[in-house]
């Protein structure tokens, strides 16, 4: 599903050149739940952004659903992104001016789903996330856990082939964090491919593979048994 080869990302300022990713090779298959770990600054979020097509690599190859996308324009990336990828962020990134319902509805608007279908699908996912009773609330009226459940709902409303989660529990207490992780496992069980960046070993172990990074490189990859996640 995803294959990257010798992927590089270099940030340049006037005086300094920082290599965020240094010839990274990773392959992720459909249905996997991959956790990416590593200390701050190791390049894991950069990797996730490139995988999520919201950033371009400086070098190497990126095959996404059999397309070589590393040289894609923003427009092409946007097309692929909105049809195939759902995002979950540490700081939720809900739009403050939109209600819960409208936030979740937004990806469907961009993919031109009809109004009636949008309503059905949004209500479906909100029901699933147990957020239906908060559908007309604004993000600032919700707790952190609730906001992240809305963000998850928004990420999955389009039935994406892949869900990218950047520290999804980073701003949550342990109970809410656990809830979110269980939701992700559940989605994975239903067939969604999940790639998650985390600092937490506890959260990482909800996945079935852990990739550890250091200084822009993959240092280890561990497969986890199904028993370990449960």
């Amino acid at each position: 599903m995803i294959r990257i080869e010798k992927l590089k990302k270099v940030y340049r300022t006037e005086d300094v050149e920082t290599t965020a990713l240094n010839e990274v090779d990773i392959t992720i298959n459909q249905g996997e739940f991959v956790s990416i770990m590593g200390p701050s600054g190791c390049g894991k979020s950069t990797l996730l952004n490139i995988l999520g097509l919201i950033d371009n690599p400086s070098g190497g190859a990126y095959h996404f659903l059999d397309h070589e996308v590393s040289k894609y324009s923003e427009r092409q990336r946007s097309m692929l992104r909105k049809n195939n990828i759902g995002f979950i962020f540490q700081s939720f990134n809900l739009i403050d001016e939109l209600t819960v319902f409208e936030n979740v509805e937004l990806p469907l608007i961009y993919t031109k789903v009809s109004s009636r279908d949008r309503k059905t699908r949004v209500e479906e996912v909100l029901e699933r996330m147990n957020m239906m009773h908060r559908r007309n609330h604004f993000p600032q009226q919700l707790s952190g856990g609730q906001q992240q459940r809305v963000a998850v709902a928004r990420a999955i409303v389009n039935n994406p082939k892949i869900i990218l989660a950047d520290e999804p529990t980073g701003n949550l207490d342990s109970a809410n964090g656990n809830d979110v992780m269980k939701t992700l496992v559940h989605l994975n069980d239903e067939g969604a491919t999940i790639i998650m960046v985390t600092h937490s070993q506890f959260c990482a172990e909800f996945g079935n593979r852990i990739i550890r990074m250091l200084d822009g490189q993959v240092v280890t990859e561990n497969l986890l048994s199904k028993a370990a996640r449960l």
Partner: peptide, 16 residues
């Protein structure tokens, strides 16, 4: 900015 970022990430094009 957050709104702009989110819209872009979930599929909004620059033109939109």
């Amino acid at each position: 900015l957050k709104e702009i970022g989110v819209r872009k990430v979930i599929g909004g094009s620059r033109k939109q």
